[in-house]
Design a protein around this nucleic acid. Structure first.
Lengths: 110, 110
DNA sequence: TAATCATATGCGTAAAATTGCATATGACAA
DNA sequence: TTGTCATATGCAATTTTACGCATATGATTA
């Protein structure tokens, strides 16, 4: 039961749920400093929250030079699938501000 | 976002997740003292956990004489639906002991 | 009405999670 | 190799959550 608890616990924090929502709704991996800017949370806290999501097997990291990008863990189980879908079902209206900021940032990437 | 957080927080405790799993998997409402017996948790703690699930809108109560029965909240939103399904997808093997005990108890009800 | 059964809650404590600050690590650029 | 940028982490303080114990509430039965 512990692994399921770990997932729900990982999702029961605003910053972490927002990170997951963004990863579900933009179809891109995203790096730590981008999350910092979009969510307006201190870098050290973003790092910590990402760790918790990773430990719950919700996200994975890819290192690229100085940067560490994060993306959703590919779906392996029915449970994972339904959890991802449940996050996806959270309406964009809950994330309007962050979504605007995120799109702006991604547009400027290159 | 707070209501979504509240749901995930409510589910991130073993006792509460087990209660939800039981409610999903038996097709019955169940009363406090039955949960106490099935999960082997003190009555006062079961009551408190039930309150948290109720406050998260996951369950509802029905009073019948001395007893208070709890059942799942009927599905209103896509999110609720997916959350319920995700709990349902937790394999019975995680709950074998509790499920046996629960079925025994329900069989003795009348 | 008193005793009893089922459930809920106030209060203090223990344990866990989150944060801020300082700083470490690791990669790249000058 | 030194400096800078991106990310991670140790530690202490704070906040939140869970628990045990005692007891309250509310309904039923004797």
């Amino acid at each position: 039961m512990d692994n399921y608890i770990k997932v729900f616990k990982a999702l029961s924090d605003t910053t972490r749920l927002k990170i997951m929502w963004l990863l579900m709704n933009i179809d891109e991996k995203i790096c730590v400093s981008e999350i910092v800017e979009v969510l307006e949370v201190y870098q050290y806290n973003v790092s910590r929250h990402l760790r918790i999501l990773k430990d719950a097997n919700l996200i994975e990291e890819v290192k690229e030079g100085k940067w560490v990008f994060y993306h959703l863990t590919p779906i392996n189980t029915k449970f994972q699938d339904l959890i991802q879908k449940s996050i996806h079902s959270i309406p964009e209206s809950e994330m309007r501000k962050e979504m605007v900021k995120c799109k702006e940032l991604l547009a400027l990437r290159d």
